[in-house]
C-alpha cells in the first residue's frame, strides 16, 4: 500500500454561505495533516460571504499554488444543488463527484451525458434529510462527508475522519456531528 503521507489529491468543496463549506474543508485538511501530508488550500472571504457562492480548493501533497484548475480536480463535494453545476468544470476526466440531493434523477440529461463521456462518477445523496431527522439541519455537511468517505475511491478512511471530527468540532455540536457522519457513512437515506 502507498504510504499515506504521500497522498496526492485535489479536492473542491462548494456550496453557499452558512452550509459549512469551510468547516468541511478543515475536516479534510486536518485529517491529511494528521497523516503527515502537506496541505495547501484557498477559500472565500469578505463580501462574497454575504449569501454568495462559497468555493474551497484543497490540495493534498506537494503543491505550490492553492488553486485548482478546471478539469484537474480528483473530487468535488458540493453541498448545494445549484453550486454543484457551477463547480463541476473543476472535475477531471475519471474524477468523483458528490452532491447533496435526495432526488434520484438529480442530473440534467445533457450534463449527465457529459459526466458519462468523461467517466466522472457522480453520487447524489440526501444529506439534508439525515441532518433534519437528527434535528440538526446544519450537520448536513457531515452526513455528506460520511457518505463520501464510504466510497472506496476516496483516499480517506472512516476512522481518521471520525477522529478529526471528534477533535475539531466545538463540544456542543460534537455528538450530532458524529451521528450525522455515521448515518451518512452507513448510507441511511
Amino acid at each position: 500500500m502507498k504510504p499515506s503521507n504521500e497522498m496526492d489529491l485535489k479536492l473542491i468543496l462548494s456550496g453557499v454561505g452558512g452550509q459549512g463549506v469551510l468547516f468541511a474543508t478543515r475536516i479534510f485538511s486536518e485529517s491529511a495533516l494528521a497523516l503527515g501530508c502537506d496541505i495547501l488550500g484557498s477559500e472565500t472571504h469578505g463580501m462574497s460571504q454575504r449569501g454568495g457562492s462559497v468555493i474551497s480548493h484543497l490540495k493534498i501533497g506537494v503543491y505550490a499554488s492553492p488553486l485548482i484548475r478546471h478539469g484537474t480536480a480528483d473530487v468535488l463535494i458540493s453541498f448545494d444543488e445549484d453550486e454543484v453545476y457551477r463547480t463541476l468544470a473543476f472535475v477531471r476526466r475519471g474524477g468523483l463527484c458528490f452532491v447533496n440531493s435526495s432526488r434520484g434523477d438529480f442530473w440534467d440529461a445533457g450534463v449527465e451525458a457529459y459526466l458519462a463521456r468523461n467517466e466522472i462518477t457522480a453520487h447524489s445523496f440526501g444529506a439534508d434529510k439525515i441532518a433534519l431527522e437528527l434535528g440538526s439541519p446544519r450537520s448536513s455537511n457531515l452526513a455528506l462527508i460520511g457518505y463520501a468517505v464510504s466510497v472506496p475511491q476516496l483516499p480517506f478512511g472512516h476512522d481518521e475522519i471520525k477522529a478529526t471530527i471528534e477533535r475539531i468540532t466545538p463540544s456542543r455540536f460534537r455528538v450530532v456531528n458524529l451521528e450525522a457522519f455515521e448515518a451518512g457513512y452507513r448510507r441511511e437515506q
Binding site: Q49, R50, D82, Y85, V91, V111
Partner: peptide, 21 residues
C-alpha cells in the same frame, strides 16, 4: 486534458439563479 468547454454551455442553459451578495 479534460475538455470542460462544452460544460459551460450546458450549465448556462440551466439558468441557475444568480447569487448576488
Amino acid at each position: 486534458e479534460t475538455d470542460t468547454r462544452e460544460l459551460a454551455t450546458l450549465v448556462a442553459d440551466l439558468d441557475l439563479p444568480v447569487r448576488r451578495p
